[in-house]
Computed example of a mutant assay.
Amino acid sequence: MIRAYRMVAGRNEAVDGTPGPDALRQSCWIDLNAPSAAERRLVEQTFGIELPTREEMREIELSSRLYREAGGAFMTATVLCRADAPVPETMDITFVLTGETLITLRFDDPKPFYGFHNQVSRQSVRLDSGVSAFLSLLDAILDRIADVLEGAGRDVTAVAQELIDGHQGHLNSDQQHLLLKRVSRAHDLTAKARESLVTLTRIIAFTATVRELANDKGLRPRLKTLGQDAQSLADYTAFLSSNIAFQLDALLGVVGIEQNNIVKIFSVAAVVFLPPTLVASIYGMNFHFMPELDWPYGYPMALALMVMSVIVPFLYFKRRGWL
Rank of each mutant, 00 (worst) to 15 (best):
V159G: 02
Q123R: 06
E61Y: 12
I49M: 10
L51K: 00
G130P: 09
S136F: 07
T78I: 11
M91E: 12
L127R: 00
T157F: 13
M57Q: 15
P88N: 05
Q119L: 12
A160W: 01
A77H: 02
L66S: 13
A140F: 08
C81N: 12
G151K: 13
A140L: 09
S132R: 09
A152S: 13
Q123V: 11
L80P: 11
A133Q: 01
A140W: 06
F113G: 04
E69Y: 07
A160S: 15
G71I: 07
M91I: 09
F47G: 13
V120M: 08
R65G: 04
S124M: 10
A77C: 15
V87E: 10
A83N: 04
A83G: 08
E69I: 08
F113Y: 10
A73R: 06
T90P: 10
M91W: 02
G48D: 02
V125Q: 03
D147T: 10
G99L: 08
T98F: 01
R68F: 08
S129H: 14
T76Q: 03
L142V: 10
E100D: 14
F107Q: 07
E150H: 08
L149M: 15
P88L: 01
E89L: 07
Y67H: 15
E59S: 14
R54E: 14
F113W: 09
R82E: 10
R126Q: 10
Q123E: 13
V159W: 00
T94D: 04
D147G: 12
A73V: 14
L62S: 12
R54V: 13
E50F: 06
V96S: 02
A77L: 11
A133T: 07
E150S: 11
T76C: 06
E55C: 05
N118P: 01
A152L: 08
G115I: 04
P88S: 05
L137P: 11
A73P: 01
R126L: 12
E50I: 14
F47T: 14
G71R: 08
S64D: 07
F47D: 07
V131Y: 02
D147L: 13
M57L: 13
G115F: 08
Y67W: 12
T76E: 03
E69R: 15
I145M: 09
M75D: 03
I145S: 05
Q123K: 02
S132W: 01
L66I: 10
E100V: 05
A83S: 11
D155H: 08
L142W: 04
Y67E: 07
L105W: 08
D109P: 01
R68L: 13
S132I: 06
R54I: 13
T53I: 04
I141S: 09
S64H: 12
D92Y: 00
L105I: 03
D108A: 12
P86D: 04
V125F: 02
R65T: 09
G151E: 10
M75V: 03
A83F: 01
F113N: 00
S121L: 13
R54S: 15
R58S: 11
E89D: 10
E150G: 08
E55K: 06
L127S: 01
L127H: 04
E89H: 04
A77D: 01
T90K: 08
G72L: 04
T90I: 00
S63R: 11
R126Y: 05
P52Y: 01
D84V: 09
A70Q: 11
T98E: 00
G48F: 05
T46W: 02
T98D: 01
T46I: 07
A146C: 05
E50P: 00
